[in-house]
């Protein structure tokens, strides 16, 4: 009986996550429609990861008190690809919904990369390779305060070429930062080429395990899989940091982006955005 209740609850949650993720994808496209400077392909690959974090009950937050001491800390290290955060922050009340129309417009606080002047954003982002190291310091600080809050970091796979990432990977493993979760948006494409042709990171989960992390690889568009991986991290009893290698598709949901290795710098015009939103609706 208990299992039945849990299954129904999980099914309801997954249905909600699916609905939210689809909405976030459409809204992200709409933002790109008014702000072509934003990196749309990189943002679309992270949608399910972000939706599961914020709507799946894993990230603790209080939009009325963005700096609430008991919150989980979320670091959007792959800043370029986190435009998908804006509709989520608006939906949850961190920022006004009307602000979504101001992205990249003069005077707006919502730029092409989310920065710490925005409620709910912890760090200055966009310069790649910083987020995980700062998250390590936050995790040590939370441990010192005996807080049960966790730190979640989203990095891109192209970002993993930064040496500072591996300084942080080694540090977190050595320190046993079990309150730290790294999610790699593993979309396989950097700016100029497939990651495997630039610096081949395979097998990434094994590399991370060698550095004393718990690491799993999941389909990053499978909401249930991301959800379970986050649950495992929260409930883990090991003294290791947790990594989720989320295999994703860059430009997910827009066929012309999905099939283009140079999609990172590709811009959709208003008509293409409208068509993409229409298809997703």
């Amino acid at each position: 009986m208990a299992n039945d209740v849990k299954e129904i609850a999980d099914a309801a949650l997954l249905a909600r996550l699916k609905e939210k993720a689809a909405w976030v994808r459409r809204e992200t496209l709409k933002i790109h429609g008014i702000a072509p400077e934003t990196r749309i392909a990189s943002s679309l690959s992270a949608v399910e990861v972000l939706a599961t974090l914020y709507y799946g009950g894993w990230l603790r937050f209080d939009p009325r008190q963005p700096q609430w001491e008991g919150r989980d800390r979320f670091i959007a290290s792959k800043g370029h690809g986190c435009i998908a955060l804006y509709p989520i922050l608006a939906d949850l009340g961190f920022i006004g919904r009307e602000e979504l129309a101001t992205v990249c417009k003069p005077g707006s606080r919502l730029g092409g990369i989310p920065d710490m002047q925005i409620p709910g954003i912890e760090t200055t982002n966009g310069s790649l390779g910083h987020g995980l190291g700062v998250a390590c310091g936050i995790a040590v600080g939370l441990r010192q305060k005996r807080s049960d809050a966790r730190v979640y970091v989203v990095c891109g796979d192209g970002e993993l070429c930064e040496g500072s990432i591996w300084e942080a990977v080694m540090f977190a493993g050595q320190q046993g930062l079990s309150n730290l979760t790294l999610i790699v948006d593993y979309n396989g494409i950097s700016m100029l080429d497939y990651c495997r042709n630039i610096i081949n990171l395979e097998p990434l989960d094994r590399k991370l395990r060698e550095f004393q992390w718990d690491a799993v690889t999941v389909d990053g568009h499978d909401l249930g899989a991301v959800h379970r991986a986050l649950a495992d991290g929260r409930q883990s009893s090991t003294s290791r940091p947790q990594a989720i290698v989320a295999r994703t598709v860059k430009g997910k949901g827009v066929p012309s982006l999905e099939s283009d290795v140079l999609c990172h710098v590709k811009t959709l015009n208003a008509q293409q955005v409208a068509e993409a939103v229409g298809r997703l609706s």
Partner: peptide
């Protein structure tokens, strides 16, 4: 970076 995170 670690010093920054601690200061945050």
């Amino acid at each position: 970076n670690v010093a920054t995170g601690l200061a945050i």
